[in-house]
Nucleic acid binder design. Structure first.
Lengths: 332, 332
DNA sequence: TTGAAAGCGCTAACAG
DNA sequence: CTGTTAGCGCTTTCAA
């Protein structure tokens, strides 16, 4: 039985050093095309397969960052993940995506990721983590950064959803609207967040404080989905207490308002004004006024924060809060 | 970098040599009870996991699927990748994303991925692969599936872009439009595809065949980006030969048509009709007529196909072609 | 872009 | 029973 080929064999066959061979495996971009060709040919000839265990041993880090997020096609998620991927693409870290579709799955990832060596750091997006799970990450020295949710002792990027609702109310008031409505996504899975509720609370309490009303009949927490949004809005706009302005807890739902208005023959913003939340690309395309939560920028910040923690285990815990602001467009 | 505990750490904490630590792992019977107790205690305190074991488990827990795609934030890419992630989330596979930003980088990945033994299967999205590179994957038994591009002897998911252009033309003709325009993304990198050109060819040739004209001045291949789309459309719509209908090679560009129309005070579809391509979510939200290429479904199919190849190396090569169809909305 | 050389974490002789 | 030491095959500085 012939001995398995090693990078030494490959190197001498190709007439280069083992370093260069190693580089072909790990960062091929840094190797001259000619060298690479020779090395690949030599590998092929020798049926070379790198020994996983040897590289695991020698490797200082995995050069991999994971992102753990709910599986969702909601644009705000997609856009945030994209921005993280973008930030990562200018580093030499690989991105491993873990999409969570159930509570059990989440618990599974949370218990296994810290223990089994596969990533150098993890970004947890919009997913709640229990105290003991956090502890596990600490015990095994796997740095994490949480986005859209916070936890004591863990660095995070977040926003103040209550303040966001407040901002929406204040903005609509400043524009002179007198009657109000709200739509948001309700009945989210238990393992998810409650940003919607917080935005609602901020909105409602601010309106009340200013002596305005927010009748129950103008409020809708509905299932996720454009059709549900449109339907809810139609119901609200058909009611006797039809509002002049609606705060939609996400831009996608604001789109629902615009769609519903169009289908009912109403003009935006004259018959019905709407302000969304998130500032996804779509809001720009459709000219919807919204509250900017820096979806693109926050991904980059999260990556930087995580890498900082990876480089320096003693790095101070930071909670970065993005200041919200209204982006005024044509829907109010 | 945060470090995991090693036998060195355990050894010094327990006040013994690494050999002894190693022995309790391998032949505990040969270690004095007292030493063993101290060592076990130290291991517990440090959360020590032998690195080899961790890597072995890492290999066993998950199989890894890679996706090699151009680095792009175009919604159709993002949505397709998202759908692949979704399909994967219900399986025991990790998704590793490799974004390509240059021809060099592509060649690098293509030469190292088969050899480096880091993934168990690869989806190649919208990237051309040379014969010899395909051969390398075969030599190393790394299953691949290509999406949005095809190659002899490799399983693929694709669409007929020429037919798509034809479909757009036929649809617009059937709606009674008489004058036509086209916008698409031009000047793509050499390592990229030419779907746009093929859609254009199908569109143009069909129009000509039906005795219609497609004047040069109504055609624009512009840079990627909403602003460029809007600008191009404005130029076309300001021309003397202003068309009644435009085929946009992607939905995002169709959005550009809608935006441009709005800014020029024109009505869609009365003053200017537009049909897009892709059927991204955005098209639905904005009510844009488009050609559906099953972005969501194709990701799932690609994953299934790849897993089939991974499970059965002798699995027959399949080329799955999705039938295109027009989704009629309000923009035509 | 490349190579020399110093490890990586662990096992396995070999002494003691 | 325990420690010293020499590798395993690969990665990673650091210079050139």
């Amino acid at each position: 039985m012939a001995k398995k080929a090693t990078i030494y064999d490959v190197a001498s066959l190709a007439g280069v050093s083992i370093t260069t061979v190693s580089r072909v495996l790990n960062s091929p971009g840094q190797v001259a095309v000619l060298s690479r060709k020779k090395i690949v040919a030599a590998m092929k000839e020798l049926n070379f397969v790198p020994k996983a265990e040897a590289s695991a041993r020698a490797r200082k880090d995995f050069k991999r960052i994971g992102i753990l997020s709910p599986f969702s096609t909601a644009p705000s998620f997609v856009q945030r993940i994209r921005s993280i991927a973008g930030a990562l693409s200018v580093t030499d870290y690989e991105l491993i995506t873990y999409s969570v579709a159930s509570e059990e799955q989440l618990a599974g990832y949370l218990s296994m990721l810290p223990v089994s060596n596969r990533i150098d750091g993890l970004i947890i997006l919009a997913l709640p983590v229990k105290e003991e799970e956090i502890q596990l990450f600490k015990d095994y020295n796997l740095p994490i950064v949480m986005v859209e949710i916070s936890h004591p002792n863990v660095s995070s990027i977040e926003i103040d959803n209550f303040a966001g609702g407040k901002l929406a109310a204040e903005y609509l008031l400043s524009r002179g609207y007198k009657t109000f409505g709200f739509i948001g996504e309700g009945g989210q899975p238990a393992y998810s967040l409650h940003a919607t509720e917080m935005r609602f609370d901020g909105y409602r309490s601010t309106l009340l404080k200013k002596g305005m009303d927010l009748p129950e009949s103008n409020v809708s927490f509905h299932e996720y989905g454009m059709d549900h949004s449109v339907e809810s809005v139609k119901r609200i706009l058909s009611g006797s207490g039809k509002p002049e302005a609606i705060f939609a807890a996400s831009d996608l739902q604001a789109v629902g308002v615009v769609k519903a208005a169009r289908e009912m023959g109403l003009e935006v913003p004259d018959d019905i004004a709407v302000i969304g939340f998130d500032d996804i690309d779509l809001a720009d395309y459709m000219g919807i006024t919204t509250i900017n939560q820096f979806l693109n920028q926050s991904g980059k910040t999260a990556v930087e924060l995580l890498i900082e923690h990876m480089k320096d285990p003693l790095c101070a815990v930071k909670n970065i809060s993005f200041q919200l602001n209204v982006i005024e467009r044509y829907s109010t």
